[in-house]
Structure formats: C-alpha cells, structure tokens
Simulated scan of single mutants.
Amino acid sequence: APNAAAAPRPAAPAPAPSVPGKPAAPVLKPTVPGAPAASAPPAAQPSATASTPGPSATDEISTLRQLAPVMKAQNHFERLGLTEQADAGAAKIAYIKLARLYHPDTLPPGAPPELEKLKAEVFGYIGDAYRTLTDDKARKDYLEGLKAGADGKEEVDVVAILQAEERFRKGCIFVKSRKYTEAVSIFDEAIQLNPAEAEFHAWRAYARFCAAPDKKAAQPEVFRELQGAIKKNERCAPAHYFLGVMAKTLGDTSGALKHFKRTVELQPDHIDAQREVRMAAQKK
C-alpha cells in the first residue's frame, strides 16, 4: 500500500474564473452527525490531530487491528450492525453514523501509514455494505445468496482505495492550480480505482466545467454527473456546492442559492457556501 501521508479531503476550490470574486477555501470535514448505534461494530474514536502519532493514534490503530478482521468475516448486515430485516433506510442511517468515524476524511494530518491503511480497509467494508443494502435489486440478490448458503463476504481492495485517495488529492491540487484538463485525467484514474466514491465524480464534473470553453454547452453533461454523485451519496456537500457554482456562473441566481443553502445544511462550516447565502440575503 502506498505510504503517502494522509490528509483530510481538500477544500472545495474557488468558483470558475467567470464567477465574480474568489471565496476562501472551505474546510471539508465529515458532515454526518451522531455515533454508531449500539449494535454496530466496535468503534474507534478519532485520533488527535497531530503531526506525529500520539497515544490516541496508537490506541486507534490497536482498535482497528482488531476490528478489520472482524468486519472481514462479517456479512453486509453485520458490518452495519443490522439484522437481515433492516430496510434501505436503516442501512443509510447506519452508514452515516459509521462514516463519521471511519471515512478517510477523519484521518489527521501526518497520520501513520498503518492507520491510513486500516481505516481504508474498514471503510471499504462499510461502503460495500451500504451500496449493496441501499440498492433494492442488489439487496434482494444478496439476501437470496445468504439464504442459499453464501457467506455474504466480499474482499476489499485496500491498495486500490489508498491509490484512489492519493490520485484524488493530486487532482484537487490541479484544480486549485487551474490545471483543469490535467485534473480531469487524474480524477478519471481515481474513479477507475474506486468508482463508488461520490466526491471523485463531483470534483471531476467541476473540473470538466471549468475546463470547458463554452460553459453553457458543458452544463447538461456536468449537471448529470453532479446529480449522479448525489445519487451515490445524497450527503455529498461538494456536489451541491459545485451545482451552485455552475448555476451562478450561468446566471441562475435562485438556483445557485438553493444549492448553496443545501450545502450549508449538509456542511454547516462550509465557508464559501455560507458567504454565498449571506451575499444573497444582503441583496434582497
């Protein structure tokens, strides 16, 4: 697995050049409130934010070392702390709670490589379970497989997940440097390695929009990709923010405000979206 230093997901970039002003970059933090349900797998508490691993990071690594093999041996329902009677709504709630603890965004700057690897593995199991149990057909097929005697366990490619995150971070750096074409290529690689990650699709769509010489002509395809990201994860704040940026760029003020408000609902500390909402209120 790669040994690149882990860092929280990069902040959303400034809007495309055609948007007036240059807002400060927001900090993308986990936006899902709550903690795992009592029936969920044992949870490691997020480690302290430090450049070198302290006792909390050591404790978390120890906990994750025990949790990873447990999750590997579980089926999708067990991984989310659910019974086989749980519906898609229960799976979403369980996923949201667990994502707050195990999503790659929760890694502190300078996290040790082993912590990065373990979180990627655990979150991979959680993500696989979520995608299967929230899709009606996939859930039905999965249940039938369990009843037929299948163990319901799937392998997670930890190396691919880590490589995808590394490429994603590189793509975001290209976006901030306004190297949009290069960013699209890097995001393509990240999506190839981990196609289920909604943020990858959202950022690629935004890079495509920024790279397009004719923004109006590019809008339909970019809109579809951003909506696809939201379908993968309805709480994907960057997708909503980028929809707002695109709408504002094309002169749809009311549409932009709607998306910016939704961004703030999902991520209350999103500085750029907050500013856009305040500016809109001041103009009234």
Rank of each mutant, 00 (worst) to 15 (best):
A273P: 02
P2E: 06
V32C: 13
A256T: 02
P213D: 12
P23G: 07
S18Y: 14
F123C: 01
L193S: 01
K258C: 10
K216Q: 13
A43S: 15
R100H: 11
Q227M: 15
H103C: 13
K232T: 09
G152V: 08
P8M: 13
R139W: 00
A148Y: 06
G255L: 05
P46T: 07
V19K: 00
P213N: 14
P53R: 08
P112N: 09
P13V: 07
L82K: 03
P108V: 04
R208S: 10
R224M: 11
P41I: 04
P238I: 02
A111K: 01
P112K: 04
A281N: 11
N3E: 15
I61V: 15
V27H: 05
A5W: 02
R9C: 04
F123I: 01
P104G: 08
L146F: 03
E78P: 01
K232I: 14
H76Q: 12
A218P: 04
V158E: 01
A247R: 04
P36E: 06
V277F: 11
Q45M: 15
A25E: 12
M246G: 04
D151Q: 13
P41A: 08
F187K: 01
T52K: 13
F77P: 01
K140H: 13
S177F: 12
K29P: 03
R262G: 09
A183N: 07
A57S: 12
A212E: 02
L250I: 14
V175A: 02
A212H: 02
Q74P: 00
A4R: 11
P104S: 05
A38W: 13
V159N: 13
R131G: 04
R278H: 14
F187R: 00
Q267K: 05
A50V: 13
P23T: 10
G152H: 05
L118H: 03
A190M: 06
G149T: 04
E155H: 14
A196V: 01
A57R: 02
A90K: 13
Y125S: 00
A138P: 08
G34W: 07
T263E: 10
P112D: 07
G110M: 01
D135P: 09
A183R: 00
L266A: 11
I161A: 00
A138Y: 11
T52P: 07
A229S: 12
R100G: 14
A247L: 14
K176T: 14
L266T: 09
F187M: 11
R208W: 08
T31D: 05
P8K: 06
K179C: 06
F200D: 03
P33E: 11
L226G: 02
G21W: 12
G228S: 08
K97R: 12
M246E: 02
P69E: 04
H76T: 07
I61D: 06
T49K: 11
E265H: 10
R178Y: 10
F209S: 04
I93L: 15
H240S: 05
A207M: 03
I230W: 09
E116D: 11
Q267L: 10
T134F: 12
A86P: 03
N233I: 05
A86L: 04
F209G: 03
K258T: 13
A90Y: 08
T58E: 15
L193N: 00
T31K: 06
H270D: 09
Q219N: 14
A50D: 12
T49D: 06
E182V: 12
E121G: 06
A14P: 03
R169C: 00
P112C: 12
Y95H: 06
Q267S: 14
G251N: 12
G127I: 00
